[in-house]
């Protein structure tokens, strides 16, 4: 047997092993920021690094790694690279597996836990809501459930961001093609009003969302965010140093009710940051729940 398999087109194979310098950068980004690029996204990471290398006039990944680690610009450069990595992630229904898990499993569990309390009301917090696509997505999803799992329930979505202009954009609620690219015709028709080339979020969706400017490191403001069932904080903590992350996570822990959930961005992790939360797996998504004293039940079957 000497012939190469006929159906094995060369184009189907990856072009080569991952560049070791690129893997070093991937691991550094994960260590510093907590966001991971799996092997199938390394090409994308390479493109993002290339953009930054062009700006800096750096010719090799080895030199760029130095820019991220030992050069005086290292902190600013890490922020610039993270901006490149997360660019274009802002849109409605950004992370569908996460939203499906939230709607199909998490809301059910929260409602079950909440049913023991008198108040049939959910409090959801979009922490670092940027231009508002995430909180409005959540508002639409919850409205879809008001005839189902949330029948007889009310809900509110707290949407906060550090950036005043982002908050103003949120309140305006007007979006172009790029932000709305994942919206199905059902959601467009039901929850938006067309205005020229743009779509405006309708008053029903807006009515459930309260926007405000909050610095997640502001202890006084954070202490006021109480009784939360669910926090989404996507691609925000990656910009914080480890001490700041710990502070914010400690606040989140205090803000959440005992049954509460914390969702981070795609491929974002709390590893090495906090022992207060436990990772849980949902279908094609992960989330964090408040850690309790471990009780291993030998009867639970996998």
């Amino acid at each position: 047997m000497t012939a190469a398999p006929s159906s094995l087109a060369r184009s189907e194979l990856p072009s080569g092993p991952p560049d070791s310098q690129l893997v070093r950068i991937r691991d550094l980004v994960y260590q510093v920021a907590g966001i991971f690029q799996p092997d199938n996204k390394l090409r994308m990471l390479e493109d993002r690094c290339a953009k930054r290398m062009q700006v800096l006039g750096v010719s090799s990944l080895r030199d760029y790694f130095e820019c991220l680690t030992i050069k005086p610009i290292r902190q600013a450069e890490m922020v610039s690279l993270l901006n490149e990595i997360t660019i274009g992630e802002t849109c409605f229904f950004r992370n569908q597996p996460q939203l499906d898990a939230l709607r199909n499993i998490v809301i059910t569990r929260i409602v079950e836990a909440r049913a023991k309390l008198a108040l049939r009301h959910l409090r959801i917090w979009s922490a670092g809501c940027s231009t508002g696509e995430e909180p409005y997505t959540l508002s639409m999803m919850m409205l879809e459930e008001t005839a189902g799992k949330l029948k007889g329930w009310t809900f509110e979505i707290l949407a906060t961001d550090l950036n005043e202009r982002s908050v103003a954009h949120c309140k305006h609620g007007t979006y172009g093609d790029y932000s709305t690219r994942n919206l199905t015709p059902h959601f467009k028709q039901k929850y938006f009003i067309a205005r020229g080339e743009e779509l405006v979020v309708n008053p029903e969706v807006k009515a459930h969302v309260n926007f405000s400017r909050v610095n997640l490191l502001d202890n006084a403001r954070m202490a006021f965010m109480k009784g939360i069932d669910l926090i989404l904080c996507c691609n925000v903590l990656i910009y914080f140093d480890v001490m700041s992350k710990r502070r914010v996570i400690q606040h989140f822990y205090n803000n959440l009710l005992p049954h509460g959930y914390l969702f981070l961005g795609h491929s974002e992790s709390l590893y090495g940051v906090s022992e207060d939360f436990r990772l849980v797996h949902l279908p094609s998504a992960t989330a964090y729940v408040k850690a309790e004293k471990r009780q291993v039940n030998p009867q639970v079957k996998i």
Binding site: I105, H281, L282, P283, S284, R294, Q295, V296, N297, I302
Partner: peptide, 12 residues
């Protein structure tokens, strides 16, 4: 899809 939540640390 198995619609459930799993904590791997709690598996037997």
């Amino acid at each position: 899809v198995e619609e459930r939540q799993v904590n791997l640390l709690e598996q037997p």
